[in-house]
C-alpha cells in the first residue's frame, strides 16, 4: 500500500519537475519547487514506513521548515533583484 503512495508521489514529483523545467515564468518554477519540497517531505514520511523504520520523521519536519524559508527567500530576492536592476532589457525571457 505504501508502495502505491510512493509511486504516486514520484509521479507527481516528475510533474512538478516538468513544470519547473518548462517555466515559463520564474514564479512557475518557484511554485513547482514549493510543491516539490512538499512532495519530498511526503516521500520521506512514506518511505520511513515503507522501510520499516519510521523514526526519522525529523527530517521530514525539517523539510517543511526549510522549504518554507527557502520559498520566502526566493520571493523576497526575486522582487529585490528586479527593483535594483529595473531597467534591464534581458529580463523578458523570464517572464
Amino acid at each position: 500500500m505504501f508502495i502505491v503512495a510512493t509511486i504516486a508521489i514520484l509521479i507527481t514529483m516528475a510533474m512538478a519537475l516538468a513544470r519547473a523545467l518548462l517555466g515559463p515564468s520564474v514564479f512557475d518554477r518557484i511554485l513547482a519547487t514549493n510543491s516539490f519540497g512538499t512532495l519530498t517531505m511526503l516521500l520521506i514520511s512514506v518511505y520511513g514506513f515503507l522501510s520499516g523504520r519510521p523514526e526519522f520523521l525529523d527530517i521530514a519536519l525539517l523539510y517543511t521548515l526549510i522549504n518554507f524559508i527557502g520559498i520566502i527567500a526566493v520571493t523576497k530576492f526575486v522582487n529585490f533583484g528586479n527593483a535594483s536592476h529595473s531597467v534591464r532589457e534581458d529580463e523578458q525571457g523570464d517572464i
Binding site: 519547473a20 520564474v26 519547487t33 519540497g37 519530498t40 516521500l43 527530517i59 527557502g70 523570464d94
Partner: peptide, 24 residues
C-alpha cells in the same frame, strides 16, 4: 537554462532529490 534564477531554483530541487536518494 540561462536564467540564473531558474538555475538557483533547480539546484534546490537537485539537492532535494539528492537528499531523497541519501535517505533511500
Amino acid at each position: 537554462l540561462s536564467s540564473l534564477f531558474a538555475v538557483a531554483m533547480l539546484s534546490g530541487i537537485f539537492s532535494l532529490s539528492a537528499a531523497s536518494l541519501y535517505l533511500v
